[in-house]
């Protein structure tokens, strides 16, 4: 029985995931390209990656997107979850509206934001001029272009955090809160002493999943800036897509993907360690949840 329960995902893993992984690993040590045969070139692709300034920039960008984007999305999502959770009326409509950005197809997200931020016919520029501010070159300045992508990513994916944290809140037990309230604790204290620690498992799951997805950030950048100006908003997945599928340099693209994969695995592990440290400092009231969680630590071992 117990083996049957986890058989399907493991079966999927071996049937569908392992083969592409080996295939990609194999590709990454060749110079295969679409429309050409490949030969074994050892680790040349990897060596080349580390002197490729587009790759390095994309690598740095990807990590910054994850750190900035996920941080912003987590706190906003948590705030929204708490706000909506404390509401009495209109919850359902609000929830629907909050989730809306996640439902819009990527190409349309790209177009909408491209036009919103356009300094000539976009309403944001209109707003700035209306307030007698100088219009901001949202998409054409390297730094601002980067910021714009983080903003759009946050717009689209805060709902993801909201959804996971909100449902997480719904599963918390009542008793500790009532006890604390009886003791006359302030809302602020109740949040830090009870809600936040008890929500940690859900938070970690949400942060980890969102980080993994963020590492693959692709369509928003693809449709809004195309990686520009001058590669300032590139991500690894975008580079991988263009290298592998647009210009057909499969071997090199595969090496990029493997590096991306390794990075995600290493950083996911780091995130877990850091979070566990933080949790160790959380105190008393959350201790119970904490204990339960620590008793079964999330894995750090790379399988």
């Amino acid at each position: 029985m117990k083996h049957l329960l986890i058989a399907p995902p493991l079966l999927f893993f071996f049937a569908i995931s392992v083969i592409p992984l080996l295939f990609t690993l194999g590709l990454s040590v060749t110079n295969t390209s679409i429309g050409g045969s490949g030969s074994f070139i050892g680790l040349n692709n990897y060596a080349q990656l580390f002197s490729d300034q587009f790759f390095l920039r994309g690598f740095l960008n990807t990590i910054l997107y994850v750190v900035l984007g996920v941080t912003a999305q987590y706190w906003l999502g948590l705030g929204l979850a708490l706000l909506v959770n404390s509401m009495v009326h209109g919850k359902r409509l609000i929830r629907l509206l909050i989730l809306l950005p996640m439902m819009i197809p990527p190409l349309i997200v790209g177009f909408v934001w491209q036009t919103l931020l356009d300094s000539r016919y976009g309403p944001v520029a209109g707003l700035f001029t209306g307030l007698h501010l100088k219009p901001v070159p949202w998409l054409t300045d390297p730094t601002l272009g980067f910021v714009s992508i983080v903003i759009v990513d946050t717009w689209q994916w805060t709902p993801f955090m909201f959804l996971l944290l909100f449902t997480g809140l719904r599963t918390l037990p009542k008793e500790p809160f009532e006890a604390a309230r009886v003791d006359g604790a302030s809302s602020w204290r109740i949040f830090w002493d009870h809600t936040f620690p008890m929500l940690l498992p859900a938070s970690i799951a949400a942060i980890l999943l969102r980080s993994i997805e963020s590492f693959k950030l692709f369509d928003i950048v693809f449709f809004i800036t195309g990686g520009g100006p001058g590669g300032a908003t590139n991500t690894l997945t975008l580079l991988g897509y263009f290298t592998s599928l647009r210009s057909g340099n499969l071997g090199y693209g595969a090496a990029m993907s493997i590096i991306l994969l390794l990075t995600v695995v290493v950083l996911a592990t780091l995130i877990l360690i850091v979070v566990r440290r933080l949790m160790a400092r959380a105190d008393k009231a959350g201790q119970q949840a904490l204990d339960q969680f620590l008793a079964e630590p999330l894995p750090v071992k790379v399988a």
Partner: peptide, 28 residues
Amino acid sequence: YRNNDLSFLIVSQRIMPPIVAVIALFTM
């Protein structure tokens, strides 16, 4: 492999960027 390794194994599938996996998937 114990529970945690298994759950990581399962989650790790999600880590793989689909960009290159699709070429293998296509062939399969």
